[in-house]
């Protein structure tokens, strides 16, 4: 049973989101879609920036790409997990990239989504988060 969309959005709007994505083209329209769900979005362009921004603010959710320059998504979450064991993490990965599922499993990554991020998949994941939350 899924949460009705308006309800889902009203709940997600309260979330503080850290969005880490290096590719500007991809970021542009994905961020636009994310604004429909999240009121407070902090954008980081790579892992290192993401880690810095994480330290400055209290976040409810991290949505991060894996393959990035300077610091990869995996390295970033490994560092974050040293600071915060409970923060909710969703990793994004492209189809043509190696499967990092095994690598990220040790860092309590709740959801592992593939790019491009489809609306249905985002709604489904948020549904699961809030359901768990309710339960």
């Amino acid at each position: 049973m899924s949460i009705p969309l308006p309800e889902l959005i009203s709940r997600s709007k309260k979330f503080e989101l850290l969005y880490v994505e290096d590719n500007e083209d991809a970021r542009r329209y994905t961020l636009e879609m994310l604004t429909r769900f999240f009121e407070h979005i902090t954008v980081a362009e790579n892992g290192l920036e993401g880690l810095e921004k994480f330290k400055q603010k209290k976040f409810d959710l991290i949505l991060s790409d894996i393959n990035m320059p300077r610091m990869s998504g995996i390295e970033m979450i490994s560092k974050i997990r040293e600071l915060d064991q409970s923060i909710l993490i969703i990793m994004l990965s492209a189809h043509n990239e190696p499967n990092y599922y095994e690598e990220v499993s040790g860092y309590d990554v709740k959801y592992y989504l593939s790019k491009p991020l489809a609306l249905a998949k985002l709604v489904e994941t948020l549904n699961l988060i809030f359901k768990d939350d309710t339960a």
Partner: peptide, 21 residues
């Protein structure tokens, strides 16, 4: 194609949400 498709996917998602909402 990954980035354009991601963009298309994101745009269509946004528009869809807008219609639904």
């Amino acid at each position: 194609w990954r980035q354009p498709l991601a963009s298309i996917s994101a745009i269509s998602g946004t528009l869809n949400i807008d219609v639904l909402m």
